[in-house]
């Protein structure tokens, strides 16, 4: 659980693995401030920013890519769900940032008649953990249809802070 701890600490997240209690609903995803090209809502949770001409912040773009590498084989293209896993564009309307992180890190199991579904723990997977915020930001943007289906056409420049954090996280032992 090495990565999960560092990941969780880096995020300032308190993780109760497996059992996620229903907490406060996620707030308004509207961005109120920006730090080094990363946007935050009024609660201080990471969020997207889409300019009037459709240009998305770099984290939304990065989240789009990582989602379609790590998540979409179960949760479907564009976060719209599949025949066996829920549409995360809807799930993030119910789960707040901490709950989202808790599920990705801890995993969970759902059993209904004739259908057993399992969300694995991604705690050891750098391709997910190093981009946890990015994926969350992308899903929030999809949840409000701030971005449509498919690849965002225009994006902000890659922030230096992004490259720095990415290199550090991906090379961490």
């Amino acid at each position: 659980m090495r990565l999960s701890l560092t990941g969780a600490l880096a995020l300032g997240v308190i993780v109760s693995v497996g059992a996620v209690a229903h907490a406060e609903a996620p707030g308004d995803p509207k961005a109120v401030k920006s730090v080094d090209g990363k946007y935050f809502d009024a609660k201080g949770d990471p969020t997207y920013n889409v300019q009037p001409d459709g240009t998305v912040d770099f984290y939304t773009f990065s989240g789009y890519r990582r989602y379609h590498s790590e998540c979409h084989v179960c949760h479907g293209p564009n976060a719209e769900g599949s025949t066996y896993a829920p549409a995360l564009k809807d799930s993030v309307k119910r789960f707040n940032y901490q709950e989202f992180a808790g599920i990705v890190i801890g995993g969970r199991e759902n059993k209904t008649a004739g259908n057993e579904s399992v969300m694995p723990s991604f705690a050891e997977n750098k391709n997910a953990m190093c981009y946890l915020d990015d994926i969350y930001i992308y899903l929030r943007a999809r949840s409000t249809d701030a971005i449509g289906r498919g690849r965002p056409e225009k994006k902000e420049e890659k922030p230096a802070a992004f490259s720095e954090a990415e290199a550090k996280c991906m090379s961490a032992k």
Binding site: Y64, R65, Y67, H68, S69, E70, H72, V73, P77, F122, E124, N125, K126, N127, A128, G150, R151, M170
Partner: peptide, 21 residues
């Protein structure tokens, strides 16, 4: 459409390294 990018290998975790539409 197919866009490859760098991924790291962890046993038992997805090792895809591309996004496609």
């Amino acid at each position: 459409d197919y866009e490859p990018f760098r991924v790291s290998y962890t046993a038992g975790q997805p090792y895809v390294g591309a996004t496609l539409e």
